[in-house]
Each structure stands twice: as structure tokens, then as C-alpha cells.
Amino acid sequence: MDWSDEGIVLGARKHGESAAIVSLLTRNHGRHMGLVRGGAGRTRRNLMEPGNLLDAEWRARLADHLGTYTVELDRAYSAAVLDDPLRLAVLSSACAVADGALPEREPHATIFASMLHLLGGLTRDNAGGEVAVWSALYVRWELDLLRDLGFGLDLSVCAATGSEDGLAYVSPRSGRAVSLAAGEAYRDRLLSLPMFLADGSLPADIDQIARGLTMTGFFLERHVFGGLNKPLPAARGRMVSHYQRLVGSAPSATISSK
């Protein structure tokens, strides 16, 4: 058995003295683990950093074996975000959420493409104002993940009135949007829907991103991680705290890096 594919490193664990067991999100084979000989050694350890894009070749005698990877670095996305706390938090969260949520060896080409798009946005040489771009990409990536796992949210029309305008809430029960007028009486029991998820625009402030993360976090916890009897990854919690601290320091300020 062997195949070649592109793969994003989601995590790596040392195995023995110099080998590593690596979890890759591949384009055509989903989340797939494999042994990389020398993967924890001095010369190849840097390839196994979460978020890096690798060209991987997997070989095993039988399809259900762990198998071994031969890898080559395609793009070192992780190195480009090491110095920026928020971008690093977003990258770590994406890798931890994908690693915890995706079933092994089940193709999720949409999630791979969406994650690659997110990594591209994170590492593009953008000025501080473009934090909105990759923050929105992250929230949408979590929505894609929910959809691909069978828990898609319908944020296009109001579940109560059928209206496409004035969408402001999401029902925690059905995962469908609710308009401001129809949901006002139940606002304590509904999740807030930030404008940028309703109309496809860019988030105007950090508060919108934080509300988007609260919403996706609720559904990820209930439908995905809850079903696996696991809490949401700590890396995601640290990322959310980072955004919430920014909201606390400047609730309505224009988005800026760090």
C-alpha cells in the first residue's frame, strides 16, 4: 500500500529516540497518522511543526497499519507566525481542533482546502488592519468543519419568518439563523450572530469575531467534541481568551494586530 499526497501537520509525538508519529490532514486521505523515521531528530524536527505543509508519501504492508511517511517540506507556515501571538494562537487552535474533531482516514477535501486558505491568509504579509481577514477565515473554517462533519448551520434565512434581512441570532437547538425582530423576545436563549457571518462582509471589530467564536465553539462543543467525550482543545480556549482580552481592552476599536 502506498500513496502520495499533500498534508498539513496537525501534531507530532516523539516515538523512540528519533522517530515521530505525525498526524497529517491530507487532501485526499483525510486525517492520517504515520511514522516518520528521524522525525524527532535534529535535522527533521522542524518539518513536524503544526501548520507546516508537507509533500508526504505513505507506505505500509497493509492498509490498516500505521505505516511510514517519507516527507518533504512544501511550506513552513508555522515559522511565519511564531512572532505574532494572535496568529500563532489561531494556527495552534486550527491544528488542535482539526486533530481532535476529524475522524481518522476519512477524506475531507473541503476542510483541507479551507485550512490551506486559512494558513495562506495567516501568513500573507498583511498590515495590522487585515487581522479581520484571517480572523474571519478562521471562524468560517470552523463553520466549514461543522458542515463537513454533518452539523452545518443555516445562516441564510430566519427560521421563524423566512426573511433574509436583519439576521441577528442563531438558535442553539436548530443551528438556524433568527432575525432580530423574531428573536428579540428570546434573546437570552439564543446565540448572537455577528454581522459578518450573516452578510459575508468582514468583521468590523474584535467583538464580532469573539461572538462568532462563541457561536462556533458552542456547536463544536455540543455536536463534535461532546460526542467524543472530549472538551474543546485548550489551544482554542487560549485563542478565544486572546480575542476576549482584546475586546476588553478596546471593545469597539478597529481591528489591529497583537
Binding site: E49, S78, L82, P85, L88, S92, R238
Partner: peptide
């Protein structure tokens, strides 16, 4: 200079 190492740096800095 790893993702985990630098995530720790940012956390400790905070």
C-alpha cells in the same frame, strides 16, 4: 523556536 515553545512565550509574557 517551536509552535508550542513560542505559544508558551506569548502566554508567559501575558
Amino acid at each position: 523556536a517551536t509552535v508550542e515553545g513560542q505559544a508558551t512565550v506569548h502566554y508567559v509574557t501575558d
